[in-house]
Amino acid sequence: MRCPFCQSSDTVVRDSRSAEEDTAVRRRRACQTCGGRFTTFERVQLRDLMVSKRDGKKALFDREKLARSIKIALQKRPVDEEQIDQMISGIVRRLESSTEEEVTSVEVGELVMEALSALDPVGYVRYASVYRDFKNPSDFARFIEKHTAKLGDADKE
């Protein structure tokens, strides 16, 4: 493994442990050249998934891109990193266990929406605003009104 600080390939594993409900291995590494310490994760990848975009282009499924979009939706929300990782692992497992070699970006988006609705209602609305391309505040109001039961709106009196 190449050191992210000095690019040396002289690194050693200091600690390994299971992560993400035993679906990954977390390794703490140290660089023998510069002394830098960093963490890597190893995950099983059952197969390469292609994502068919709305514009017709195709791209390899990118777990990190999925994680970034979810973390943006959950920014400053009371959701810890472990919950996010578990949610992402669940989405990836569902995608990889399908019999199709190719999934649509719409399928991925719907799985994220489903998972976010169960995890955090504000993150769900934030993600929906980008995914569904809200143009103005009334789009938010219509979405929230339509999905109030799913959002678990306990504040409504």
Rank of each mutant, 00 (worst) to 15 (best):
D85C: 12
S105E: 01
S69E: 09
I72N: 15
L60N: 11
K71S: 09
L74G: 03
I84M: 05
V106M: 07
K53D: 01
P78N: 10
Q86A: 09
E102A: 06
S69D: 06
E102W: 07
I91V: 13
Q75E: 15
S89N: 11
I91F: 01
R94L: 06
K57Q: 14
I72R: 15
I70C: 04
E81S: 11
R93I: 11
K58G: 11
R63I: 07
I88G: 06
E101G: 10
E101D: 11
I84S: 04
K71M: 14
I70Q: 04
E82A: 14
L66P: 03
D80V: 13
I70E: 02
A73N: 05
V106L: 10
E82P: 08
V79H: 06
R94M: 00
G90W: 05
D80K: 13
R77Y: 08
F61D: 03
G56H: 07
R77K: 09
S69M: 07
K71G: 10
V92A: 05
R54W: 02
I84V: 12
L74P: 00
E107C: 00
L60W: 12
E64L: 13
Q75H: 15
E102S: 06
E82H: 13
K58S: 12
V106T: 14
L66F: 02
D62T: 01
S105L: 03
V108P: 02
Q86P: 04
K58W: 13
E102L: 08
R94C: 00
D85G: 14
R63F: 09
T104K: 00
I91H: 05
E96T: 01
Q86T: 10
R94P: 00
V79Q: 03
G90T: 05
T104P: 00
I84C: 03
I88S: 05
G56R: 03
Q86K: 12
S98N: 13
P78T: 08
A67G: 12
Q86W: 06
K53F: 06
A73T: 00
A73L: 08
